[in-house]
Amino acid sequence: MQTPLTRMFADAWQIARFDLGTAIRTRRAVVAIILYALGALATAVVLVKIEAAVGDEIQQIKAMASAQSPLTGDGASQLEEAISKLVGGDIDTARHLLGLPLVILGFFWMSLTFLPFLIVLVSHDIVNVEVRNRSARFVLLRSSRSALLIGKMISHGLLFLGVTVLSNLVLFGYAWYSLPHFQPGSAILLLLRIWLLTVPFGFCWLAFTALISALIDNGGIAMVVAGIGLIVLSMLSMSDAVGFLSPSHYKLGLWSPRLGPSLAGAAAYLGFGAMFLAGAWARVTWRDM
């Protein structure tokens, strides 16, 4: 016997499967995959070239970083200083990042910077397209509004997860092929950590996009508003007084070598994501469809 909750999740899964199937048959998935894979490939090519050119210096920095000794030499100390500025002056995090393969570091940076924009580009109509053409009515005759929203979130979430995994594999393969010092064992563990941290990060921005899509029926306007929203939240995060109100404020935690700040960053993204999703849910639940 199904409870309302299990029925809702069963329906959400059916909706997600159908929506994902539709996305794969349409340009949505193709656009996402091509954009992200091209970005990954371009990043990989550039970073592999950089890593190949300055590989020796990086090896030296890695050795010093692992020995926890002060970095010596102009280039190394300048690099450490530059990276520590990027991560809010946190020397530990800067050293940790210096110890990572540049190609993976770059890819993580690319994910955190561009994934929200890709999500807005691809998912701005996650809710409103179904409302606008009223195709949601065929679903709502058979299922709840909550199942519709959760199903769409699962579908888009799986799409982005697939896209990032695919892009990571492209990057991983290219780096392995091109870099003589590349260590696939440690790299794959790092990639796994990055994937795990990217999930709450991506969920937050997908929920944000779903909220905008639930509030604004016009797809184009929703995309522009969500894009502006991303920029505003990113700028807000730099404020000392109210920066904590923006999810972007917690991005630095994701870079940390320590488990605590990493988990705190991930939890913050999950929390903001849950709030955005609750807003989208409230709107979808009470609006006319």
Binding site: D11, Q14, F18, T26, R134, S135, F138, R142
Partner: peptide, 21 residues
């Protein structure tokens, strides 16, 4: 005045609706 998924076949759509039922 509801529209059907433009990219899905009639069979796909009906099977999906049946599964939801």
């Amino acid at each position: 005045d509801a529209r059907f998924h433009p990219e899905r076949t009639l069979s796909d759509s009906l099977i999906f609706m049946g599964r939801l039922q």
